[in-house]
Design a protein around this nucleic acid. Sequence first.
DNA 1: CAGCAATTAATTTGATCATATTCTAGCCCC
DNA 2: GGGGCTAGAATATGATCAAATTAATTGCTG
Lengths: 231, 231
Amino acid sequence: MNQLDLIKNKATAAQMNNEKQPAHEQVYQTLKAQILFGDLVPGQPVTIQGLSDSLGVGMTPVREAIRRLISDGALVFQGNRRVSVPLLSDVHVQELIFARKAIESELSKRAIANLNEANIDRLEQLDKQLDRTISEGDVGGYLRLNHAFHETLYSFADAPILSDLAERLWLRFGPSLRVVCGRFGTQSLPDRHKDIISALRNRDSEKAALATAQDVEQGMDLISGALATRT
Amino acid sequence: MNQLDLIKNKATAAQMNNEKQPAHEQVYQTLKAQILFGDLVPGQPVTIQGLSDSLGVGMTPVREAIRRLISDGALVFQGNRRVSVPLLSDVHVQELIFARKAIESELSKRAIANLNEANIDRLEQLDKQLDRTISEGDVGGYLRLNHAFHETLYSFADAPILSDLAERLWLRFGPSLRVVCGRFGTQSLPDRHKDIISALRNRDSEKAALATAQDVEQGMDLISGALATRT
DNA sequence: CAGCAATTAATTTGATCATATTCTAGCCCC
DNA sequence: GGGGCTAGAATATGATCAAATTAATTGCTG
């Protein structure tokens, strides 16, 4: 199990549930985290042998994980058998904005029915930690905690299909968001987490949905703006 | 290429673009069609060797296609390494209703900008063929043409991410829809295609979105109702 | 220098085998 | 009849190799 120990060491925010997970699952989780949090860069080619070397596992589990991530939209097939991390165009960002607002607002709404005060405290705690990463200029920490905030919130929605769709969308913009954060710094990262939390405490699902939509829009506008200044 | 000839013969509505597609891609397309149009049954276990035998290809491309379809939500991992065709619960159907209405309405709206009269004629033609399958009691034909109608419409939206999400959702309910159609017959299959077409001809995007949402709701309510009577 | 062809290198794909894991059937006991 | 155990069958997983495909490099010619 030397190779799996290597995976564990390289995992960033990957959930290593236990040692019994097959290698392909562990590779998938590792790669997913790398994409979500921008360790893989937009446009970067991804090869089976390259990942096999860097992750210290064989080619078979890497192949299988890559297949899954292509279906997730997290990696794109180039048409010449090559695979890379997706670039985002502004058209794609507009699509992401629409889809995220529709889906994530609904998830916030649905989560309210299942949230108790301790759960909301947990979200508030995550947001405090997030604020710390912002003041410390910790981009990687910001990305992980921002994702954790949303993922935790939506996990209470009891809506696996919608959560699955949301995760797919996050995988599409993760690498680009990392680039944007690195370029503009953590001070430029607005969010509406406190509004979301306040709406949750008040059991106001409409306000929660609205704050979520605004949170989505602010984050994606950052990427959209960065794309515009890049051309 | 004997094995690939076998795939071709077994393909139902699979798009066999050319002979140059790798086997894993062809298996994926074949399985996708089988799931969409209900040749695979809710709850049915799916094994690598079983598909390898029935499709006449080796295990490697089958494994890779299965991985992709699990990520698509079209097949589900049981947690004991086994894979099966998803069953739908009513909670899932409600999620699907929400997501499909949000996404597919938007796709219809966006399609209007790119549709000319010939395109709309084509949709109308598909709908006429669809009406024929209904009067002939041709369940398989109905499912394929219903999907083709929507897929064609949404392809004009120039919204690859939203279309991808929609396809994912269709893959989740395809097998259950087939069961419902078989149980209640084609006469019970309401749709709003004519309203959609009329709205398209009038360039009325709000009406197109509304008719799409109603179309979605009617179709999914059929599944929901069937689930209720099954328990 | 540019363009083309040939060669080499890099990468993907599929086969196939061994090993690990899960399921099933049969047996025994209470 | 129910529960537990074991052996064998079924299935998934990962390794590893050869063949196919694509990319990159090199050499030659005008």
